[in-house]
């Protein structure tokens, strides 16, 4: 997943300080960034330049005393109080303009609901279909209405230069117009625990016509697949890879699914349980009900998020991964 995101970022052209410009906000934010940057460079060079000149020119030499006649100069001090004050007002205004634009959602947006959960994102489209990756059309205003099921998360799309916290018990909003086709990383930027740095996904920007096609195909997403293949798709869709592997490598948070089928597990209360259809179903819908010895109860509760059909596919996937 990480390496996939990496190669994505590497493909796109970008500036020294900033990632690819992928939305209408990006050029404006970058412009303000550049303005502050060069202004800062200007003042920094003056300050450090003068400091260096003074240290060399006025270094202590025998017989030369410091000139102690200068103790203040009101005109000069008023000057260097007023000039920075005016400059920061300009900076404030530039930031204010862009921020208000980013927080004022226009009326005619394509609306997507976002749910943050430890440690997966779920995006629900107007037709009720949901994905783990965000798919949006190019050039059309899209708004995200976001909430969290547990702790505070924060959704950041660096290429779009937007970020907003995703808070339980309230809805927050973001909007954007994507200007660049392709795939860009989405990251969680509010610390949310063990899997915080793996709460990653991507936004896929389609041509508007491709977006419609994608939506149609995604509607019957499991067509033509055998159950185990469909299970692998479900596994990706719900971000199960954040805590589980399919290749037998142990993950620090959750067990690998390879070789899990038919295993006899010891629970934290000492009881034993056979990994069968019912146990897997319960572990997905109510993961805290039975905790395997040595594991912590940290899995996302998928009750209400996943369809019965999809659970069946997952069970078939686990069966297929029997040693």
């Amino acid at each position: 997943m990480l390496s996939a995101l990496t190669s994505l970022a590497a493909q796109q052209g970008r500036s020294f300080w900033m990632p690819t410009q992928g939305s209408t906000f990006a050029p404006e934010v970058d412009g303000v960034f550049q303005f502050i940057f060069w202004l800062s460079v200007f003042f920094f060079v003056i300050i450090i330049g003068l400091m260096t000149v003074f240290v060399i020119r006025y270094r202590r030499r025998p017989g030369i005393e410091a000139d102690n006649s200068i103790t203040h100069n009101t005109k000069l001090e008023v000057f260097w109080t007023v000039v920075p004050s005016l400059l920061v007002l300009v900076i404030f205004y530039l930031g204010f303009r862009g921020y208000i634009r980013a927080r004022t959602v226009p009326g005619d947006t394509y609306q997507i609901n976002v749910l943050g959960k430890k440690w997966v994102w779920s995006f629900t489209y107007p037709n009720g279909f949901s994905t783990n990756e965000l798919h949006v059309p190019l050039g059309r205003p899209v708004s995200l209405t976001m909430t969290s099921d547990d702790v505070i998360h924060s959704l950041w799309i660096p290429a779009f230069r937007i970020k907003m916290d995703v808070v339980p018990g309230r809805y927050s909003k973001l909007w954007f117009v994507a200007t660049e086709k392709g795939e860009f990383p989405i990251l969680c930027t509010e610390y949310c625990g063990t899997g915080h740095s793996d709460m990653l996904t991507k936004v896929v920007v389609h041509e508007p016509s491709d977006f419609m096609k994608w939506m149609d195909e995604a509607g019957n997403q499991y067509e033509g697949m055998n159950p185990a293949e469909a299970g692998e798709k479900v596994f990706k869709k719900y971000g199960c890879f954040a805590c589980h592997t399919l290749d037998g490598k142990d993950h620090p948070i959750g067990p690998t699914l390879k070789g899990l089928w038919g295993k006899m597990e010891t629970l934290s209360d000492g009881k034993k349980v056979l990994v069968d259809e019912n146990y897997i179903r319960e572990s997905i819908l109510d993961p805290q009900a039975k905790i395997v010895k040595g594991r912590t109860p940290s899995m996302t509760v998928f009750k209400g998020m996943i369809k019965d059909e999809e659970i069946t596919f997952l069970i078939e996937l686990i069966k297929s991964l029997k040693d």
């Binding site: 960034f33 800062s40 450090i48 404030f92 930031g95 921020y99 634009r101 980013a102 937007i162």
Partner: peptide
């Protein structure tokens, strides 16, 4: 002087609303 200069000037980026939206956290 050098370090506080950088610390102070980079604060300007973060006090700026639209730029902070990108740089926050």
């Amino acid at each position: 002087l050098f370090l506080f200069g950088i610390g102070g000037l980079t604060g300007l980026f973060l006090g700026t609303l639209s730029v902070d939206m990108h740089l926050h956290d």
